[in-house]
Every structure is written in structure tokens, then in C-alpha cells.
């Protein structure tokens, strides 16, 4: 190892040496390609077409058979990959940005009134039961299709903000910040140009954790009727499968939960590998 090796190239090298991390990153990438293909109209477009029969067995025409309404299960499961990535990415990116900004302000002004207000907001949001909050937001937005996304972003940022706050409180005492102050760099530049970029490794890990939480929450919210409003998702598929498993039809259930499980598992392992590579202090 060269003495001048940067933090990121060191992390990258560590990550490349992690077999599970690489394999899981490959699986996540595979899912992403599937989602991209749906988005580009390459496949999975027949998800709502009604075919001749309901609960058809597996065949060359319908690889995973059809559901109770006679829709192709394979196409629905493929199309839902796009839905999952839309939810996961939008919630992860926006809640991480929100958490980073508010956490940085709160940490930089620790003990002052702006910190108190942000801490109060975090405590308050954490104390409202999540599913009730989503239900309330859905009704307040009159069933808007993005109500679920909005509710997740509004609540998921608090964990990120707490992590960033702690790190910023440490960073702001370091010498390079003192130097920036001494030469008169304005406060907002110190926070957003000098301190916040130094928390990006934490933000990356947090974003992967939020991604997983978002697609897992989608399943439960869709079952409760609060989730995806237009299109199809694994959650909606599992919700409709509850009508089918009682008559012994498991294809829909297995297709949706299998796709969901593999993606979540791969993302969890990927997130772990990322943490191992980026956090030199992490214990195993």
C-alpha cells in the first residue's frame, strides 16, 4: 500500500477483495438492468394484458403462469422491478439529501436554536407511528400516487440526519476547518463545501439502507392499500396472492416474494460490504 493512497481508492481496493460484496453488487446491477429494460420498453410490457384463462400453469407462453385475473405473472414480476427501483432510488436520494443538509446544519450549530429545532423535528417525526403517518399523508394528499414516496422521505431522513450530525460535530473541531475559518471562508461554504463532502462515505451507506427500507415498506403499504396506486409492484402482487394461496395457487406469491427477497438480500450484503470498505473502525 502506498503511503499517499486516498481514502476512496483504498475503499475501492477493499471492496474488490470482498467476494460476497462483489457478487451482491452484481445481482443488484442485474436487477437494475431489468428495471432499465422495462423503462426503455424492452420487456415486461404485457403486465396488465388479460389472457385467456386465470391461474394458468407454467408454459412457454406464460413462463410463470397467470394470476387470478389471467395476467402474466412473469411480466408482472419483471415490470415490478422498475417500480421497486423508482421507489427505492427516489426515496433513498431525496431522504439522504434532506438528512445530509439538516444533519449538517444541526451538527454545525450544535446547542444553538437551529440545532434544537431540528432535533425537536426529528424526535417528533420518530414518535409518530409510521403506518399511521403514511395513511394520514395519503389522505391529506387525497390519494396522490406519490403520497407514499412523500411520507417515506419525510420520515426516513431522520436516521441519516442523526448520523451526519454526530460526524459533523467531530469534523468541525478539526484543524482544516479552523484554517478555513481563519482565512474568512463564509459559514455556509464551510458547512457545505468543506464539512459535508467529508461525510459522503456515511451518506452512501445510509442511502443503501434507506433503499432497502423503502422497497420493504412498499410491500406492506401496498398490502394495506396505501402504496402503489398505478402500475404494479411486488407488494400489490403479494397482496393479490393472498386470495390465491387459500385455493392452493402459489405462483404469484413465489414469483413476487422471490424477486423481492433476492434483491433485498443482495442489497443488504452490498450495504454490509460497503460499510466494511468505507468504515475503518467497524468491528466484525
Amino acid at each position: 500500500m502506498s503511503a499517499g493512497e486516498s481514502f476512496w481508492s483504498k475503499a475501492w481496493r477493499k471492496f474488490l477483495g470482498d467476494r460476497f460484496g462483489l457478487a451482491s453488487a452484481g445481482i443488484v446491477l442485474g436487477y437494475f438492468v431489468i428495471a432499465l429494460g422495462v423503462w426503455l420498453d424492452l420487456w415486461g410490457q404485457q403486465w396488465s394484458t388479460l389472457t385467456s384463462g386465470s391461474n394458468l400453469p407454467m408454459s412457454s407462453a406464460h413462463w410463470f403462469g397467470t394470476n387470478l385475473s389471467g395476467q402474466d405473472i412473469f411480466d408482472r414480476a419483471i415490470y415490478s422491478t422498475k417500480t421497486a427501483f423508482e421507489i427505492g432510488l427516489s426515496v433513498a436520494v431525496l431522504s439522504t439529501i434532506l438528512g445530509a443538509i439538516l444533519g449538517a446544519i444541526s451538527g454545525f450549530f450544535a446547542g444553538r436554536w437551529s440545532d434544537e429545532v431540528i432535533l425537536w423535528l426529528m424526535g417528533t417525526l420518530d414518535s409518530i407511528p409510521f403506518y399511521l403517518f403514511v395513511a394520514a399523508v395519503a389522505f391529506a394528499l387525497q390519494g396522490h400516487p406519490l403520497a407514499m414516496h412523500a411520507a417515506m422521505i419525510a420520515t426516513f431522513w431522520t436516521t441519516t440526519a442523526r448520523v451526519v450530525r454526530g460526524e459533523v460535530m467531530k469534523l468541525k473541531e478539526l484543524e482544516f476547518i479552523e484554517a478555513a475559518r481563519a482565512i474568512g471562508v463564509p459559514q455556509h461554504l464551510i458547512i457545505f463545501r468543506h464539512i459535508l463532502p467529508n461525510t459522503s462515505h456515511l451518506l452512501l451507506v445510509q442511502a443503501t439502507i434507506v433503499f432497502v427500507s423503502a422497497i420493504k415498506s412498499e410491500v406492506i403499504l401496498s398490502f394495506l392499500g396505501l402504496g402503489v396506486q398505478d402500475g404494479v409492484s411486488w407488494g400489490l402482487m403479494i397482496a393479490e396472492s393472498t386470495q390465491e394461496v387459500i385455493v392452493g395457487q402459489f405462483k404469484n406469491f413465489f414469483a413476487a416474494s422471490g424477486m423481492l427477497f433476492v434483491l433485498v438480500m443482495a442489497f443488504n450484503l452490498f450495504s454490509d460490504a460497503l460499510q466494511d470498505a468505507l468504515d475503518p473502525k467497524k468491528v466484525h
Binding site: V219, I220, F223, I238, T242, V245, S257, D272
Partner: peptide, 18 residues
Amino acid sequence: AVVGMSVSFLIIIIGFQV
């Protein structure tokens, strides 16, 4: 533990019920 973390609560409920 990682497997347990990756299974959705809803899937567990449906699976256990079956």
C-alpha cells in the same frame, strides 16, 4: 440473521399462515 432481515414481514405472515 441476514436472511431474516431480507424477508418481508408480509411474506412471513402469509408463509406461516399457509
